[in-house]
């Protein structure tokens, strides 16, 4: 697209900004001091992706998912992933109806607007992989029949980084399906005190109403796709991903899907600010959440306790940002 098509933030982008502010404020009634993670989660949802929340128990992962589902007016279902969970428990199963003499598909909990896959790493890889098709193509195939999932469809999965007993590490293919991996983090002391006061009585999640509907979300997603990304910033995003493949501490870096995710989330972050164009800050803000979980570190780095986020930080500090005014004019 050209500049002429987006001379000023169009009306739908202004609507996206209002939509995001309303959702953020609504979620903030439940979660105190988590504006950053809420914003990134919302950006992931606006990009049409799925989010993996990894943090210690009790930090608000489930609450964030519930608050977002309530704010966006999405049907919410929660699946507690356990080792004995079967794929059909998630996707659904065909049952024989003697009355009709035919098999009838009974949709599983995945047929919802927002699915909370709680402690996803407790399920077996087989069950985890049952989500691949749903997350990638928005459909479920059972007994040779494909069933489309309702749109919008969002998966928010959680996992506990500290407890590894009885867990199955998510395979790379599954991790790659998650657009973002976020950490909610502990609140500060003041925020925790504020939260205590707010939750002393009835929990606000019980009364949290929608501030937008599924159609608003779909419209916002369409508007996000129209946000301009300059060719230089595309190159910058691709260069960041490419650096993950060449980093000495990385055994397996991000693929093209990571670049696509980086661009998409950057577009969403720009739209959340009401901007019709992406700036490098959007890409930088998105990069840790987009890239870190896609990196497979070398054994030396893992033994040294190097977190993938620090590798992404190194890359962000090394890759030059296209910001020189001279480059804009080009050279003939």
């Amino acid at each position: 697209m050209t500049h002429a098509e987006t001379p000023t933030p169009p009306a739908d982008l202004a609507a996206v900004e209002r939509f995001a502010r309303a959702v953020g404020d609504n979620v903030a009634r439940v979660l105190v001091g988590k504006e950053g993670v809420t914003r990134l989660t919302l950006a992931g949802i606006l990009t049409g992706g799925h989010i993996l929340l990894e943090d210690a128990p009790g930090t608000g992962k489930t609450m964030l998912a519930r608050a977002l589902a309530a704010s966006l007016g999405l049907t919410f279902r929660r699946v507690q992933f356990t080792p004995d969970l079967l794929p059909s428990d998630v996707t659904g199963v065909s049952v024989y109806r003697p009355a009709t003499g035919a098999f009838e598909f009974v949709p599983g909990p995945i047929f919802t607007g927002l699915l909370l896959a709680d402690e996803i790493n407790r399920a077996t890889p087989k069950t985890q992989s049952a989500l691949l098709e749903a997350m990638g193509e928005g459909q479920v195939t059972e007994s040779g029949v494909t069933h489309r999932l309702p749109q919008p469809f969002v998966v928010i999965a959680t996992q506990n980084p500290a407890e590894h007993e009885g867990t199955y590490r998510l395979p790379e293919a599954q991790l790659d399906r998650f657009l973002l991996k976020l950490s909610v983090g502990y609140p500060s002391l003041d925020e925790e005190v504020q939260m205590l006061g707010r939750l002393q009585g009835a929990h606000p999640i019980d009364t949290l109403g929608p501030v937008a509907g599924p159609q608003d979300l779909l419209a916002a997603r369409a508007a996000v796709k129209a946000v301009r990304v300059s060719d230089e910033l595309r190159r910058y995003a691709a260069a960041l991903t490419a650096r993950t493949r060449n980093h000495p501490q990385v055994a397996l870096g991000g693929g093209p899907r990571a670049s696509l995710a980086l661009q998409g989330v950057a577009q969403a972050l720009a739209a959340l600010d009401g901007r019709a164009f992406v700036v490098p800050d959007d890409i930088k803000a998105a990069a840790p959440a987009v890239l870190a979980h896609r990196l497979s570190l070398r054994i030396e780095a893992r033994l040294a306790g190097t977190p993938p986020e620090s590798v992404v930080g190194d890359i962000l500090r090394a890759e030059p940002v296209p910001a020189d005014p001279a480059q804009a004019a080009g050279a003939l």
Binding site: M1, A4, S230, Q327, A328, A331, L332
Partner: peptide, 21 residues
């Protein structure tokens, strides 16, 4: 060679064109 790099109608031009601006 120098023209090859920055221009091309398929690439998004970094700044608006004469017709558009």
């Amino acid at each position: 060679w120098r023209l090859r790099r920055p221009v091309g109608d398929d690439l998004p031009v970094a700044l608006p064109t004469a017709e558009a601006v």
